[in-house]
Design a protein around this nucleic acid. Structure first.
Length: 453
RNA sequence: GUGGUUGUAGUUCAGUUGGUUAGAACAUCUGAUUGUGGUUCAGAGGGUCGUGGGUUCGAGUCCCAUCUUCCACCCCA
């Protein structure tokens, strides 16, 4: 036991059974992305630390996995610095690279780096793992996959609509019931402005976001601690007690925001988006949620979050519009909007609810039993022909006992076993056994191909 | 990063107030069955009890440290 190796915490092995189900999720998402005309991109797991730091806020920087420089990684560190043991200070001296934290920032880096080769608007999707040095817990891993789709270089709200459509289609295909929550950062900015603290947007959003988790009083308390005035907090009351129809909500927020510039634009954007949304039928709930504030700090317009209606696991998908993500890399005025599906959490939800289709488990259709040299030769040609016809098949690689071979087929969920011994070979046929029913029939190669296709 | 929790066979778990050689089920392998799996029966292999230290005549059991698991907070997919 003691000498059995393990893997770092928060990481997982994906056995074939699990991977089959994971691929089902990836394939579903990928198919939808492609249908909406997004093109696939991959970027390296490692980025320069300068690309990553400062993009995710203070917390995010702490959660970046940093890679120790190769060779003499202490060569830039002086003895006094070593003595001080200030780890944050020393980190950039011993590490120049880090593992990617999400897919959006590398995408922004890619866009800026290749701006002359890209025709805008640019739609790309990306399915790759990301790493966070977080402490693992339920639905939270240190290595997990994101499935991102972003369109960059277009301000049109049609893009927001398409994102909602993609979300709805993906979860419909996966047979999961979800609620798509929508909000707009500009509304939140307007609220911050209205209550006299336009500079404290982030503190406001972080606090508001916890509303349904910790309740009104605690939120107020947190706001007070962040330095919001009592008057301002009192003003928030009607916003936090939001409810009613979409029109009621809009009226309420409109009245509240009054003449604040950003607020008015926000109202305009939300109204337009919901006008688009009303043109179509959706399978999942879509709601305006003013308390939705999550999302990374770079979001500036619409924000999305998707939660399962059936399992409590946190958000399984999130995204939004960012007006200036590429700005930090020197490319101004390029707006984008994107979405990220959390494949690992979606897996957990599907697994929990048992929503994977039956046929994801197996794709091997047939196994040839192996009786020895002569029989092997007889089977191998037919095996090739089956494979050429697109049928996934294999031959048991050695002539072990029949029992062992049958057991192998059984535990691998192979639905058919072809048996050929002297009798079958004489007739140029095979005994085809259906592993589910146990039935056997004598067939020719051609009949077998037809039966299995 | 803060607080709590867990660790015994491949897996899920028993193991009494500290007392001989640490058990079960499932899984694996072998045989009953030399051309038939998923059911049955018989048998076998598999453990430095997470790791390191300590207390004790004696530790799976008590203490400390460390790693790991899971959970909550912060934050997030």
């Amino acid at each position: 036991m003691a000498n059995i190796p393990g893997i770092p915490k928060g990481t997982r092995d994906f056995s074939p059974e699990i991977l089959a189900k994971r691929n089902y999720i990836f394939d579903t998402i990928k198919e939808v992305f492609k249908k909406f005309a997004y093109k696939q991109l991959e970027t390296p797991a490692i980025e320069n630390l300068s690309t990553l730091t400062g993009k995710y806020g203070e917390e995010g920087d702490k959660l970046l996995f940093k890679i120790l420089n190769s060779g003499n990684f202490l060569k830039n560190v002086s003895d006094t610095e070593l003595h001080e043991r200030n780890t944050t200070k020393m980190a950039h001296l011993v590490s120049e690279k880090g593992l990617r934290y999400d897919l959006t920032v590398p995408f922004a880096r890619y866009v800026v780096q290749h701006q002359n080769e890209i025709t805008f608007p640019f739609k790309r999707f990306q399915i790759q793992p990301v790493w966070r040095a977080d402490r693992p817990q339920k639905g939270r891993y240190r290595e997990f996959y994101q499935c991102d789709a972003d369109i960059i270089g277009s301000n049109s709200l049609i893009n927001e609509l398409e994102i909602v459509q993609m979300i709805d289609e993906v979860f419909t295909k996966l047979n999961l019931k979800v609620t798509i929550k929508i909000n707009n950062r500009k509304l939140l900015a307007g609220i911050a402005e209205r209550i006299g603290h336009p500079d404290k947007l982030i503190d406001l959003t972080v606090a508001i976001d916890k509303l349904d988790k910790i309740g009104h009083e605690k939120v107020y308390e947190e706001l007070r601690q962040s330095g919001f005035s009592e008057d301002g907090i009192n003003l928030l009351e009607p916003i936090l007690n939001f409810g009613g129809s979409f029109d009621d909500q809009m009226q309420c927020i409109e009245k509240f925001l009054g003449e604040t510039d950003t607020g008015v634009t926000g109202i305009d954007e939300i109204q337009k988006l919901f006008t688009y949304i009303d043109l179509f039928k959706f399978n999942n709930n879509i709601q305006l949620d003013l308390t939705l504030a999550r999302g990374l700090n770079y979001y500036t317009g619409a924000i999305f979050e998707v939660v399962s209606d059936e399992v409590q696991i946190g958000s399984i998908c999130g995204g939004g519009r960012y007006d200036d993500l590429t700005g930090v890399f020197g490319l101004k005025d390029v707006s984008g909007v994107g979405i990220s599906f959390g494949a690992d959490r979606i897996y957990d939800v599907s697994e929990n609810l048992n929503r994977f289709p039956e046929d994801v488990k197996t794709n091997v259709k047939l196994m040839f039993a192996n009786f020895g040299e002569k029989e092997e030769k007889y089977c191998l040609h037919v095996l090739k022909n089956l494979r050429d016809s697109g049928i996934s098949a294999e031959i048991y690689p050695e002539s072990s006992k029949m029992k062992k071979q049958m057991k192998y087929a059984n535990s691998n969920n192979i639905p058919f076993v072809a048996i050929a011994g002297e009798n079958e070979m004489k007739e140029n046929k095979f005994t085809l056994k259906n592993m589910q029913t146990g039935d056997q029939q004598l067939v020719t190669e051609e009949e077998m191909i037809i039966l299995l296709s």
